[in-house]
């Protein structure tokens, strides 16, 4: 289920003192295979919501997924689905880590001040300080890295929203019976707000400067009747570099889309419709293909864009 960012942040505001009270020793005991770093209260809140998707939400795996999403988004010609749950957890963790680091650095300032006023403690404290500052340094470097990935990911998506705003508008108009449009899944809530306002502003600009001076039957910005389609659709057949990784859980025999060749190798059979050509994609190889050929495999996570 989608995790609500506001709820998480509200939880955060309520429980800020809980970060101090949490037992740091429990952190040292966790290894990469187990679930979430249990010292963060909002992770426990997530577990309490009963959302089964959090089962494998270790922060290392989430970071790996985030980087994979970032690379895919940069290389793909269309706007991919927004990973709501993943981004919710990631943003919550970043927020918590920033507060934790602030608290630690405040401790440092106080600790340094008291030692210097003590006098004889200062000579021994310098090498200890270096060792103490090392975790802080590394944590800050890591925070900068994860913030860079998030920022670059969001920038890439916003650039695509700008470019394809008319096309997204068309997609958004297909509202189904429950009142949900496919855009709710594809864009985050902030992106939706940005998209609506940006589309409104640019449409107003075009109207005021050009469109209202044109003859009435040419005034539609999304005119599809003439020789040219005015709506810029993403180029579905654009060539992309893909690497075939196979099913995400690694179980080759359980994957129905894989076929076994004569040498016992596994490959995916795909077709290029425009050329009536069949291609076999073997696992571990790198190909340059049209995007529409591998679109479903990408959504399943069986290939990655390189």
């Amino acid at each position: 289920m989608d995790v609500d960012i506001e709820d998480i942040l509200a939880e955060l505001d309520r429980d800020t003192t809980a970060v101090n009270r949490s037992d740091p020793r429990s952190d040292a005991a966790t290894d990469a295979g187990t679930v979430v770093n249990s010292s963060f209260p909002q992770e426990q809140a997530l577990k309490g919501r009963g959302s089964g998707a959090v089962a494998t939400a270790s922060s290392q795996e989430d970071y790996g997924r985030l980087v994979a999403h970032w690379r895919n988004e940069r290389c793909a010609p269309e706007l991919l689905q927004y990973p709501h749950a993943l981004m919710g957890r990631t943003l919550a963790r970043i927020q918590a880590q920033m507060e934790h680091l602030e608290m630690l650095s405040m401790d440092f300032m106080e600790g340094n001040g008291s030692e210097q006023s003590g006098g004889n403690g200062s000579s021994g404290s310098r090498p200890v300080n270096n060792n103490r500052m090392l975790p802080l340094l590394c944590m800050e470097a890591e925070l900068e890295r994860i913030k860079f990935v998030v920022r670059s990911y969001v920038r890439c998506r916003l650039a695509k929203i700008d470019r394809y705003s008319l096309y997204l508008r068309q997609v958004g108009e297909q509202v189904d019976d429950d009142g949900f449009s496919p855009l709710d899944a594809q864009l985050s809530r902030d992106e939706l707000v940005y998209f609506r306002r940006h589309a409104e502003i640019t449409l107003k600009l075009f109207n005021d400067t050009i469109l209202k001076h044109l003859p009435p039957d040419l005034q539609a910005i999304n005119d599809t009747e003439g020789a040219f389609n005015m709506v810029d659709e993403p180029d579905w057949a654009k060539f992309v570099f893909v690497k075939v990784t196979g099913p995400p859980d690694g179980r080759l025999d359980a994957d129905h889309q894989l076929t076994r060749g004569q040498d016992g190798e596994y490959f995916y059979q795909t077709t290029i419709h425009e050329l009536d050509e069949d291609i076999d994609l073997s696992i571990g190889s790198i190909y340059v293909l049209r995007y529409n050929v591998i679109k479903e495999l990408l959504a399943d996570g069986k290939v990655v864009l390189v």
């Binding site: 740091p24 952190d27 040292a28 005991a29 966790t30 290894d31 990469a32 770093n37 010292s39 922060s59 290392q60 970071y63 963790r93 970043i94 880590q97 934790h100 630690l104 401790d107 440092f108 600790g111 060792n131 103490r132 975790p135 802080l136 590394c138 944590m139 890591e142 925070l143 890295r145 994860i146």
Partner: peptide, 21 residues
């Protein structure tokens, strides 16, 4: 001293327990 807590490596993207050990 209270600075012991600050030695804990609470990492986000890498396994903190490896660094702590």
């Amino acid at each position: 001293a209270s600075g012991d807590d600050s030695n804990q490596w609470k990492m986000l993207t890498v396994d903190g327990s490896v660094l702590d050990n």
